[in-house]
Structure formats: structure tokens, C-alpha cells
Amino acid sequence: MTTRSAELLMAVLMGLLSVFLMWKSAELEIGWIPDRGPGGGAWPFWLSAVMLACCIITIFRWWRKATPESRSSVEFMDKNTRRINYITVGSLVALLGLTHIIGIYFSIFLFLLFYLRFVGRHSWLLTGTLSVASPVFLFFFFEAMLKILLPKGYSEPLFYPLYQIIY
């Protein structure tokens, strides 16, 4: 996709989002309540309307070729960038998805293992050390020092002995 097409696509998508936000904020009173000022939905409604107006102007400027992006026929994302972005965003989504199941610590271990070894092509020694040390450090920092419990999913029972040490 060229940058020119990307600009149009983004403006259209953001315009649709603005319409959705306007519709959503209209669930509350968006008009003027006499002697009281604007209703609860007015602020987000009119701001979303401003968003929509900006998108329409951007589309108009795109059509007039007024923005640098609308004149650019360069590929919006080259092959290398696409590759690294898919891998990175994909692995982040996997990290979060797995957090619901096996908890954050094991997910971080797997995420670092994958990223360091298969994306960064680092040695097993470095990969192993960082993948193990990071969740261990985070555990003691968050759970022992800050007393903030991070999600553990089904791996919770494995932490019982550790709880006994830190609490």
C-alpha cells in the first residue's frame, strides 16, 4: 500500500471511529439542559464531532493533494518493517493472551525466550539468563517490595511456597 492510500484509509477509519464515538456518547443527554449547561454526553459528543470534521478536512486535503503524505507514492511500510512489526505485535498479543492462562511470569519467560533467540538471534546463554532473571526480578520487585500481585492464571499454585517465604 502506498503512503497516499494509507492516509486515505486512516482518515476514513478514524472518521468512522468518530461517528461511533458520537453515537456512543449520545447515550447520555448531549443537548443543553436549561439553566444547567451541557448534559453529560455533550462534551464527548461535540469533541467526537470535531474529530469527524478533522477527518473530513484531511480527506479533502488528501483529494487536493495538500499534505505531503497524499503526494507520496512510497510504500507505507516496507517489507522488513512489516515483518518486524508483525512479529513484534504478534508476540505481544501472545504474551498478553498467555498471561490470562499461564500467568504473567511464565508468559514473560516465553516472550523473552522467543524474542531474544529467534528475533534477535542471541546466544542461548544470554537468552536463558535474561529470560529467567527478568521474571524472577519482577516477582520480587512487585510482589515482595510493592505488594502488587501480578496475574498468575493457572500457575498460581506454583507460587504458594514463594508466598510463604515473602509474606
Binding site: 524474542y115 531474544l116 542471541h122
Partner: peptide, 11 residues
């Protein structure tokens, strides 16, 4: 290398 820094910052 940034491939070490990036995943740590993500975490």
C-alpha cells in the same frame, strides 16, 4: 543491540 533492549522495554 536493540533486539535486547526492545523486549525488555516491552516487558
Amino acid at each position: 543491540p536493540f533486539t535486547i533492549l526492545a523486549p525488555i522495554i516491552f516487558v
